[in-house]
Design a protein around this nucleic acid. Sequence first.
DNA 1: CATATATTTAACCATCTGGTTAAACCTTAT
DNA 2: ATAAGGTTTAACCAGATGGTTAAATATATG
Lengths: 220, 220
Amino acid sequence: MDHRKRKPALIKKQMDFREPGKTAEKILAAARKVFAENGYSGTHMDEIAARAGVNKATLYYQIGDKDTLYANVIHQVLGNVAQDIAESVAKADNPEEKLKIYINCIASAVDENPEIPPIMMREMASGGTHLPRVVAEDMASVVTILLGILEDGTHKGIFVEKAPFLIHMMIVGTILFYKKGAPIKEKQLWLPAALKSRDKKLMGSLGDEVGRLVLRAIKK
Amino acid sequence: MDHRKRKPALIKKQMDFREPGKTAEKILAAARKVFAENGYSGTHMDEIAARAGVNKATLYYQIGDKDTLYANVIHQVLGNVAQDIAESVAKADNPEEKLKIYINCIASAVDENPEIPPIMMREMASGGTHLPRVVAEDMASVVTILLGILEDGTHKGIFVEKAPFLIHMMIVGTILFYKKGAPIKEKQLWLPAALKSRDKKLMGSLGDEVGRLVLRAIKK
DNA sequence: CATATATTTAACCATCTGGTTAAACCTTAT
DNA sequence: ATAAGGTTTAACCAGATGGTTAAATATATG
């Protein structure tokens, strides 16, 4: 099926990718890498099969087709972030702390999962048309959490009023772009040394630094 | 040639896409849209030819191959931003004003040029490996401008010291993600109404609002 | 007008790519 | 052991895709 005309991808076949060593798991792991590297249409089933060390027919026997495989990859890669954020944020009790946690959850999800930036960026680039509904809803629920934090903070007079969706894009955009951008920057040797050195001393994690910036931006 | 293995795209053939109505111009305009919609590997030469209203062979006669066409598109789309920023920023004299202009230049480039977000996002996603050298250098020069503004501001005690590259990723990431993300958000009907309404009242332009946020984030 | 040159086109082509098939190969239970 | 059902595989296929060719058509030049 043509990528552009894909229906909002349902997950036709749920894979049991939990058991490691199992064929399905090997396929999913390979698919994850290849899709992250090359995007949907840049990814070829033969390469996934090769990298997973299985025959292409096995791949089709275990999953179904490219669409389904892609949907499963996305679900596996982005699916758990939402719940994690919800749980972690609930533990804090003031908006400022909650916001820090919110940002750090996203940052560490990205850290533990280097496939998130390329996949998310490309999904955004293509208008999010092929995100499985589950994932789209997950992401919506995340923004809703932020909405709550910001509203609470504004009521309590801690935050100035700012558009929540813009803040969310700021958080996610900053983290994803930095994660993908930093390595590119390092390779460009002609860049002024000042740029490279300055960025070394991101005190603490990226999540912490973004947290500081965003808080400065919205605190009263 | 395979996308993944493309050499750092040189622009093999410079097109004269300036004269409107001319075949080359029609091709480039079509290519721009199609590449923005579907990415490099999702784009088919036949579609570009069809959308440009010319025969595919004409396309090859005028340009060369997919790679060259893509490089030309990128160059046309991203090539002029750098110079524009440099000139505009020079007009202001204090760091704060300069930073506002810096951000607004990027925001309006994106505004006037809706192909920037998808193309930039996908380029970042694939590690910027196929940016023509010219464009990569342009982008580097942009960051260098920001570096200057921030250093100046820090010296004068107006800004706190923050990693310049991170700030740049923050600006660009926020603008691009918001531009591409907002329309997606609008389509998700199940989202809490609060989210949609809140974001309507972005007072002024996106550039202004991002400018305000970033300044709050780094001003002493 | 005639000749040369630049541009466009329909028809091709080799290769790639997602997907299938039928047979071989395990694993398990009787 | 063997029948049965699940799993893997080599070989295959139809359609798509980037790219080419040689002829046809404008366009400019003498």
